[in-house]
């Protein structure tokens, strides 16, 4: 019978042999396991949140249904604040005016968003005529889409990954804070598109829809455009778990 191992006495030879095998094996196993699991993580997607140097954009500001800038270059850029807060408060009084905004760009699959700088220097009312380029939901089309409701800011690069169940609590918090709810889905050509989601005409989602954020959902609604931004409108009952 082997000797008894007692922690405060000299380790018996049989136990030392096991230690000499087990400890290195565990260390190597730990490192390999870490590497394999880290390597198996899914790609969060190519999204960029460029906080290195601020940029400026000029165009017409609208705040209904969500703060956005219709730029002179023809882009429709959603606007968010730093942190998990929407830009409604600061920009409400500027709605309809031609402004120059300063902030950091977020970009995913060619679609951009502006994270507004803090302080008054973030926006300047600019001379010139505000363009007409606001065509909210003209030529709406009935659609039935399958996708995931994401909070636009995280998904466009502020959090990586910014989708899926692991990010659900954050996404709900972000949308509650006024960040734009967007639907991650594919168009008929298979390309990813991210329409702004409006439920009962508002980007403030009701609780029953918030519960479905970051999960596969099916949405029956109407698709329209504001500039080059897709807008998906529906009522709360038309957002359902997918598959049913």
């Amino acid at each position: 019978m082997s000797e008894l191992y007692v922690g405060y006495l000299k380790t018996p030879a049989a136990h030392m042999r096991v230690i000499r095998v087990i400890v290195p094996l565990l260390a190597i196993g730990f490192a390999m396991l870490a590497a394999v699991v880290a390597g198996s993580m899914r790609e969060p997607g190519e999204a960029v949140w460029n906080t290195g140097a601020s940029q400026q954009w000029t165009g017409r500001l609208i705040d209904d249904p969500y703060p956005m800038l219709l730029t002179d270059a023809g882009e429709t850029l959603l606007i968010v604040e730093i942190s998990k807060v929407g830009a409604h408060e600061r920009l409400r009084l500027l709605a309809g005016q031609r402004v120059t905004l300063e902030g950091f760009p977020l970009e995913r699959d060619g679609r951009k968003m502006i994270e507004l700088l803090t302080g008054d220097a973030a926006f300047v009312v600019t001379d010139g005529v505000a363009g007409e380029g606001f065509a909210h939901a003209e030529r709406r089309t009935d659609v039935d889409v399958v996708g995931e409701i994401v909070d636009g800011k995280c998904f466009f690069g502020a959090m990586k990954p910014g989708d899926g169940k692991g990010h659900k609590a954050c996404a709900v918090l972000c949308i509650r804070g006024g960040l734009p709810p967007m639907v991650r889905t594919r168009d008929l050509t298979g390309e990813w598109v991210y329409p702004l989601l409006l439920v009962d005409g508002s980007s403030v989602l009701p609780e029953e829809v918030l519960d479905l954020v970051a999960e596969p959902v099916r949405i029956e609604g109407t698709l329209g455009r504001i500039g080059d931004l897709w807008v998906l409108e529906c009522d709360g009952a038309c957002v359902r778990p997918y598959p049913d």
Partner: peptide
């Protein structure tokens, strides 16, 4: 965000599914 971080994480959403 606009909520206490602990509440946001633990009570932020219910379960539809």
């Amino acid at each position: 965000g606009v909520q206490n971080p602990l509440i946001a994480l633990l009570g932020g959403y219910g379960s539809e599914t």
